[in-house]
Design a protein around this nucleic acid. Structure first.
Lengths: 186, 186
DNA sequence: GTCTATAAAGCGATAGAC
DNA sequence: GTCTATCGCTTTATAGAC
């Protein structure tokens, strides 16, 4: 049973990379077959709902990962400053120093937002809320914590765009470093 | 002749909206026909290179618009602070308070970056360079001007992502206001 | 210069053999 | 559970009438 679900997780991970690289509308079953090694028969056996179900499960898996690895640690860190520093480190790793794109951000910008809008909202609200909680633990008031948190999340997304545009991970790493510094200073 | 080119500009404007709404791979000739009222015969007569030529011309038109309306005013403003304020106002208008997406940003994040990478770089480099020039006129040194400029451009892109994610123009307007304030303070 | 008709290829999805 | 074959539809692109 555990093996079964591990296998499905591996498939979802491969699917996520395809969706990240090509977007929802740019992802084709041929690309998915190539990335997973599974034929259409297997794919529709695993995901009867087709491409839309695949994307929904990928987005759910991403949300789960962020909740476990980013949001919950942020909320529960004994030292909120260290929790925030850990978040930036984990974020940099996750996005491969800006060479990997945020699938949820890509979906947010595209027409497929109409299909996955609720999951997009939940993902970003989860991030903003968790970071705001950490900032409140640092002593910020509710309003200021939310303002700074929203700003930090927005900076991460913008850094991904700019790093991809310039094809330069340094842009991403620099932006994340500055973002962290501003968040923890004072 | 002027009429000819005005007509082509109108078509390019309609094309831009389709590409913005659906991305490069999500844009189909049917959607383009619907948006422009032109059949495939007319479209291939106007753009023998098909979809790729259309996108290239749209990106060139966007770059031209930004150079005229944003970059050049930024560089040549007698009062650089007013130049920057005007840039934020024009940016807010252009992106319809965050309800309209940045096509160049969308392309940067997607697989079509491989096709249009040079135009993407030129667009963002043009923005960062022009804003840095304005900041130098304000008295900032070269390094600090570029750092702040890159940060501002990144914030605009991030604000577009977050505003689309939350489906809330207020997120965009708030972020732009804060970005402008930080850029002009001190 | 714009249309309709059509081609060839690729799409998402299904059926059925194994 | 995975494969191949196939369906019906849409895609980009072309050809040719007007």
């Amino acid at each position: 049973m555990a093996k079964r679900e591990a296998a499905r997780d591996d498939i979802l991970a491969a699917l996520a990379e395809v969706f990240r690289a090509h977007g929802y509308e740019g992802t084709t079953l041929s690309l998915i077959t190539e990335a997973t090694g599974l034929g259409k028969g297997s794919l529709y056996n695993l995901f009867p709902g087709g491409k839309e179900q695949m994307a929904n499960e990928v987005l759910a898996a991403i949300d789960l990962w962020f909740n476990e690895k980013i949001y919950t640690p942020l909320r529960t860190a004994a030292d909120p400053a260290k929790g925030i520093a850990d978040m930036y480190a984990a974020t940099s790793d996750y996005f491969h120093s800006g060479q990997r794109v945020c699938l949820v951000g890509v979906v947010a910008l595209g027409a497929s937002r109409d299909l996955f809008g609720e999951k997009v909202k939940v993902y970003f609200a989860g991030w903003v809320d968790a970071l705001a909680a950490a900032l409140r633990h640092l002593g910020y008031g509710n309003v200021e914590a939310r303002r700074k948190s929203e700003q930090a999340v927005l900076e991460i997304q913008g850094a991904l765009v700019l790093a991809r545009a310039f094809d330069d991970p340094k842009v991403f790493l620099r932006a994340l470093k500055e973002s962290e510094r501003r968040l923890l200073q004072r």
